[in-house]
Nucleic acid binder design. Structure first.
Ligand SMILES: [Mn+2]
Ligand SMILES: [Mn+2]
Ligand SMILES: [Mn+2]
Ligand SMILES: [Mn+2]
Lengths: 242, 242
DNA sequence: TTATTTTATTAGGCAAGGCTAATTTATATA
DNA sequence: TATATAAATTAGCCTTGCCTAATAAAATAA
């Protein structure tokens, strides 16, 4: 009997992934409503599925007391995340898609089932540690590099930092970043914080000075300036977003 | 309105592909029963689906008179075939899967939807013309290189030829080929045909002499010896099967 | 050309994964 | 604490894609 005894449907995989992400990497209990919001479906549908996942021993779930992954569920969730992020790297590095296009395609590719596929892809890509959005890629055994990242709004005035990822992965945000010529690896200096509304004036290495909103600064993940510029824990060398 | 106005379900795509393959590249009318055999399901299920495909104007179908692709259906079928074969090349060339492993994974990958994906993959792979089984890959505009191939059993005694593909793609056949060290590009000389049962004695360039059954010889596609050894229309250089 | 066999179609159901509306539990508020 | 609100659950339906059994139509054989 292998670790993943019988394989999951796409829908089940999507539930496990969402439970993993919402429950901060699967540790915390979460509610049906939050799941339904993430999956853009109905709480009633969620409750249906939760029962199935309990039967398969992939989650713990007591009525009105929240949901959490079991060990077995966690392993599968990590595998899906691994596949998703590896495919994202492939799409960006090999097929030259841009930062904001890869996620949607990876949503489909992550559900392709084959016991060796993730590992072969991993090898082919040179064992990347981070995906194009700066998120760590779980290893075959389910470990994840931890990443030292803060949000831009917590960087002190006058300090430099380097972009390592985004919190919000919506394409509107990613496209805005593209417009500002900000990508993974971009060096940014936080010039000034405006107390009035939390806006932040930044200086972008390649471009010039710009002002961005608090919402923007809350969603841009950067290597904290105390660390040696983040280069070390980046698989990707600095590059533009296409 | 694009060529493919609303995208198909996996199941619909599989039906279109089967109708394409069984009806010799979509030209001939075929029966519900033959479709059900290919899809390993029930004729009644096939009739259900045929109605849906008629509604979507993807096939022509009159009760008890057989099924044929419309122009629209043909375009989609060719796209699925294109995706399938491109992914097979990727899996073999880049992820180092073997000849007999790629088909099953490509069955899943062919259903990943993204308008640019096939073309980007095509470019990344260097615009291959043939898939690992020697079948031609339709171009973005739906053209296919035609391939001059015969079955081994039609090669004349004493003539040399080169393997370009297989008719039967079952893994039992592919594994047998692997065992005999025969792959795309392998040079074979037909030494003798046994009249009794159609068995064929062949000499394999790399290995020695072997006898294979008529069934074997009927399923191995080779470039006919009159052609300049087939190298020209092969994207792949001769190689072993892993 | 009639009888038999094979193939195709229809009728009626089922499981998965959704939905809406109704109901029950929890939580928050007065 | 009693009440109002919000969240969770259940009940009852729907669509997709499949199935079996019954029926109709074609093809074949007598
Ligand atoms: Mn993603
Ligand atoms: Mn997904
Ligand atoms: Mn194939
Ligand atoms: Mn398929």
């Amino acid at each position: 009997m292998s670790i993943i005894s019988h394989s999951q449907t796409n829908s089940e995989e999507n539930y496990l992934k969402v439970i993993y992400h919402l429950g901060n990497e699967g540790k915390t209990k979460i509610s049906p409503t939050s799941i339904s919001e993430a999956l853009n479906n109905n709480p009633a549908s969620v409750v249906d599925m939760l029962k199935k996942l309990v039967d398969k021993k992939l989650i713990q779930y007591e009525k009105s007391k929240g949901v959490r992954l079991t060990g077995k569920g966690m392993k599968i969730a990590l595998l899906i995340v691994r596949r998703h992020r590896l495919w994202e790297v492939f799409l960006l590095e090999k097929l030259e898609y841009s930062w904001d296009e890869v996620h949607e395609i990876a949503e489909q590719l992550e559900h392709v089932h084959n016991p060796e596929l993730a590992d072969r892809l991993d090898k082919f890509l040179g064992f990347p540690q981070y995906d194009p959005h700066g998120d760590p890629i779980p290893t075959a055994s389910g470990e994840m590099a931890d990443i030292h990242k803060t949000i831009l709004s917590e960087v002190a005035e006058g300090k430099a930092c380097q972009v390592v990822g985004v919190k919000d992965t919506s394409s509107s945000f990613l496209q805005y970043l593209k417009k500002l010529d900000i990508g993974i690896g971009t060096k940014i200096t936080l010039v000034e914080k405006i107390p009035f509304d939390g806006s932040v004036i930044i200086s972008i290495k390649s471009g010039g000075k710009t002002t961005v909103s608090k919402m923007f600064a809350d969603n841009l993940l950067v290597a904290p300036p105390s660390l040696p510029q983040g280069e070390e824990h980046l698989h990707y060398s600095p590059r533009k977003i296409k």
